[in-house]
């Protein structure tokens, strides 16, 4: 039934926009949002002003201002999508049928409404690829500043490698380098090789996603530890 009541109209517009997951009381969603807000708050009150022992915090490479885009890249990533739809929004809670009781009868809008933003993953990916060189540039800078390789630089290196692997193993990359063609033999021989190579990486996309995310935080904590003077910076090769 269509009503002309203006109040209901705005309600309808709202519900057409906001995914149903956010319109219901769910401690998981609440906790998740709280954690993000807390994270942003902490970064604001404890900002990293300058490099520490030549190391630039990965969250600030090249500038903290791009963080929202990187965040969106990760939020719209197919691997994370699986995880947060399952474990935060509980759609579904598990593949086993017996554990499904909780999702039954709940409203569900999937990746429609605001979650249509998932479809822009490709654009965030372009951006993420563009800033990849900065991670390596930071390593170069650190080596020059320190005149050798320190533990922090090794950590930055590992972090850069995982970020790169994660970014390049993305499903959107997979689509662009080969997934979008049905005929490799029509002068796209190279693309076929790229595609099958990338597919091997892509199979581990979810693992890479989590490793690289964890690395980000570990490296950040390490550098903050150096700044606070509670962690040592060990020179490995002079």
């Amino acid at each position: 039934m269509i009503s002309n009541d203006p109040k209901q109209k705005t309600n309808r517009a709202m519900t057409r926009l906001i995914p149903s997951e956010f319109l219901e009381l769910n401690w998981r969603v609440g906790t998740f949002i709280l954690m993000i807000v807390l994270g942003i708050y902490l970064m604001m009150i404890y900002p990293m002003t300058d490099q520490v022992n030549g190391l630039i915090d990965p969250f600030y490479s090249p500038t903290v201002l791009i963080l929202p885009f990187i965040g969106l890249f990760r939020l719209t990533c197919y691997a994370y999508r699986k995880d947060y739809h399952r474990h935060i929004f509980n759609h579904p809670r598990a593949c086993e049928i017996g554990f499904r009781a909780e999702t039954k009868g709940r409203e569900y809008t999937g990746e429609t409404r605001l979650f249509r933003i998932e479809n822009l993953h490709r654009w965030f990916m372009y951006f993420a690829v563009l800033i990849l060189p900065f991670f390596f540039y930071d390593i170069y800078l650190a080596i020059v500043t320190e005149g050798g390789i320190t533990l922090g630089i090794v950590l930055l290196g590992i972090n850069a490698i995982f970020v790169t692997l994660y970014t390049l193993s993305c499903h959107a990359v997979r689509h662009l380098i080969g997934g979008n063609t049905d005929c490799f033999s029509c002068k796209h021989n190279v693309r076929q090789k790229l595609f099958s190579g990338q597919t091997k990486m892509n199979l581990h996309h979810e693992t890479l996603a989590w490793i690289s995310l964890t690395m980000f935080f570990l490296v950040d904590l390490y550098i903050r530890g150096l700044q606070a003077g509670v962690l040592p910076n060990i020179m490995l090769i002079h």
């Binding site: 929004f89 999937g110 990746e111 959107a172 689509h175």
Partner: peptide, 30 residues
């Protein structure tokens, strides 16, 4: 758009087809 790629279909497929990675995500990208 209602598929939220939670991959249970891929887990239960007796023919081990990579339903989500190779079919659904590819179609979503298209």
């Amino acid at each position: 758009g209602f598929c939220n790629i939670t991959k249970c279909c891929q887990d239960v497929c007796p023919e081990h087809i990579h339903i989500t990675d190779n079919a659904i995500i590819q179609e979503k990208e298209r």
